[in-house]
């Protein structure tokens, strides 16, 4: 219980520092963000107006205060491009990205167990999976599958078939990493004395798996899955660009090309919050599975 509170506090602290960093980093950049957003030929007054909208003209403590005010009211500031609250915009993109993350993580877990093994071939398959980032696997899948199979859409959301290719592309490298960890764990268990005693005593295979092997493997596997789930909003940027899915990633790319600072800050903050929340959840589940980590 005590440790739960401590880790929650630590998570909150690091999320708070992310929030401060997102306010501070644009001020530390070598060039004035307002000038870059306004363009080379904008007049000084235009740049000053933009700087005001980005809250870069205020001293840091005031900018932080205003941002805190936005946070409390749940709006995350106004998007410069759409003139609407950032939170409202993110709310429309989040479900798409969340669905993408969830489906691809489930798929990657299935794929990971298929790739488990200690043979040379399994090692090569895993290395190839890890070495196929989504921006390689995605276009290749479009080329090999989408142009021949009519009912799989190439871009945009059209029913459940939409999710097949993006999820496969996103899941392949994730599965490679997961199965590497799982295989290493299984390999280590072969040396495990207690398990060998069980085997020699003729304990049924199902009991071995349920009571010993799965609990032993699930800890490190969950750690990796947690890290991957937390980082999936980053992977979503590339996936959503390749398959034109209107999620957070595509919103981020749009905000980036429009130099929409409040929108960028909001999206990145949401990404970090998602990451921190996943880490907390993983820690909680692990404490539940393995009493030693409690």
């Amino acid at each position: 219980m005590k440790r739960g509170i401590a880790s929650t506090l630590r998570a909150a602290a690091s999320l708070g520092s992310v929030w401060v960093l997102l306010q501070v980093l644009p001020r530390w950049l070598p060039e004035d963000p307002a000038r870059i957003a306004a363009g080379e030929w904008a007049s000084e007054t235009e740049v000053a107006a933009l700087r005001h909208l980005m809250r870069l003209d205020l001293p840091l403590h005031q900018a932080l205060g205003n941002s805190l005010d936005d946070l409390i009211h749940g709006s995350l500031g106004m998007s410069l491009r759409f003139q609407r609250p950032v939170a409202e915009l993110l709310r429309s993109g989040f479900p798409v990205s969340l669905r993408l993350a969830f489906f691809s993580l489930v798929l990657s877990a299935l794929l990971a167990w298929m790739m488990v093994g200690t043979s040379e071939r399994a090692k090569w398959v895993r290395a190839a999976a890890v070495a196929s980032p989504v921006y390689v696997a995605g276009p290749l899948l479009l080329w090999t599958v989408a142009q021949h199979v009519r009912w799989i859409p190439v871009a945009g959301i059209q029913g459940w078939a939409t999710w097949i290719l993006p999820c496969i592309a996103l899941a392949i490298p994730l599965a490679g990493h997961q199965s590497r960890i799982v295989s290493a764990q299984l390999e280590a268990l072969r040396e495990c004395y207690g398990l060998r005693v069980w085997k020699a005593a003729g304990v049924p295979k199902s009991t071995q798996w349920l009571k010993w092997i799965l609990p032993a493997v699930s800890g490190p596997w969950l750690t990796v899955v947690g890290l991957q789930l937390g980082g999936l909003l980053g992977g979503a940027v590339l996936t959503e660009t390749i398959f034109s899915l209107p999620g957070l990633g595509l919103q981020l790319v749009g905000a980036l090309s429009a130099r929409d600072l409040p929108m960028l800050q909001g999206t990145v903050l949401l990404g970090a919050a998602f990451y921190v929340a996943t880490q907390l959840a993983v820690e909680w589940v692990q404490g539940f599975l393995d009493p030693r980590t409690r």
Partner: peptide, 24 residues
């Protein structure tokens, strides 16, 4: 370590994109 924790809790690609938005 606190700074490292904060930076590490932003997915790497998002951090890069955030910075690249305002760099030439």
């Amino acid at each position: 370590l606190a700074l490292a924790d904060a930076l590490a809790s932003i997915p790497a690609l998002l951090l890069c994109l955030f910075l690249l938005a305002f760099l030439r």
